[in-house]
């Protein structure tokens, strides 16, 4: 059994909260460059240039890329040979969020309950934490910065198996069309197919974490991703919705076994500021 201290986890979580909000990974920048080459709308090109300039300013000056520094969503892969000393894993993660969002001058965007009081918790906790037990003696944590604008455009539908790929395709395209300018396109389209109601939603969110444009390892799934990307970019929504032929940077699909009666499909849109970061202890 390997012992990992609570404080070591909290410190690293704090760091990735700040890093994820200040700078974009190379795959995202490369996707912008490719989008700029392909965008035909002059206004769309100008928007893409502003998006790239924004990432330079944020990185250089150490400031958040977007004012919406998100709800902190974590995917944890917890090695089963790890024991955590000094406290609970979930507490360590929330402590890291508390520290990172304070030290990094990030916005606190969490209310303590959704309907009645809606009072801000003032430290951006609690985080959403999805934990999976895996072999080994390490902990890998990936943060997804989930902004409200794109999260609000997510959708889930339970299809009949008879609806098949055509049903899935129309649903994904309609979800992007209905979202319009709201989710800050060009978006990454995360699609979860299979599992059950909640599994499909988690898959769709998880799909956003894949390096932008990296195809699914299964050829038939990758072909659907490519086809959907073409169709979505024919919608004309364009960068930040002002019209153009780059509405999505990529479509990422994740699939999972499901019930004989079911075909759950979830779509989660990630804004152009695709912010996520991993750490391993």
């Amino acid at each position: 059994m390997r012992r990992i201290h609570y404080n070591d986890i909290a410190d690293k979580i704090s760091d990735i909260c700040i890093e994820a909000n200040y700078s974009l990974s190379g795959d995202v920048i490369a996707a912008y460059e490719k989008a700029l080459e392909m965008e035909k709308s002059p206004l769309g090109q100008e928007v893409l240039r502003q998006i790239m300039e924004n990432s330079q300013i944020a990185g250089k000056e150490g400031m958040p890329l977007c004012q919406d520094t998100g709800l902190a969503v974590f995917f944890v892969e917890l090695g089963q040979d790890v024991s955590i000393a000094g406290g609970l894993l979930s507490d360590a993660i929330n402590e890291g969020v508390r520290q990172g969002y304070s030290k990094g001058y990030l916005r606190k965007s969490v209310v303590e309950e959704p309907i009645f009081g809606r009072r801000n918790t003032t430290d951006n906790t609690p985080a959403i934490i999805h934990t999976e037990i895996v072999p080994g003696d390490k902990i890998k944590v990936t943060l997804d910065v989930a902004g409200g604008g794109c999260e609000n455009m997510a959708a889930l539908k339970m299809f009949r198996p008879a609806d098949g790929i055509e049903g899935v395709r129309q649903f994904v395209i309609e979800t992007v069309r209905n979202a319009g300018a709201n989710p800050c396109p060009p978006v990454v389209v995360g699609v979860g197919i299979g599992g059950d109601f909640e599994k499909a939603a988690i898959l769709a969110k998880r799909a956003l974490l894949r390096p932008v444009g990296q195809p699914h390892p299964k050829m038939e799934v990758a072909a659907v991703e490519e086809d959907l990307l073409k169709r979505i970019n024919q919608l004309g929504i364009g960068p930040v919705g002002l019209g153009g032929n780059i509405t999505a940077l990529a479509v990422h699909i994740e699939i999972h076994p499901c019930h004989i009666a079911s075909l759950p499909v979830a779509v989660n849109l990630g804004c152009h500021s695709s912010r996520h970061k991993s750490m391993v202890v």
Partner: peptide
């Protein structure tokens, strides 16, 4: 519309900011 998600760039155009109401709401 201002361009969504270019918040660092837009902040450069803001020279002064002062809370004038509902301070309890924070951001």
């Amino acid at each position: 519309a201002a361009v969504g998600g270019v918040a660092a760039l837009l902040s450069k155009k803001i020279k002064k900011a002062e809370v004038i109401a509902f301070e309890d709401l924070g951001t």
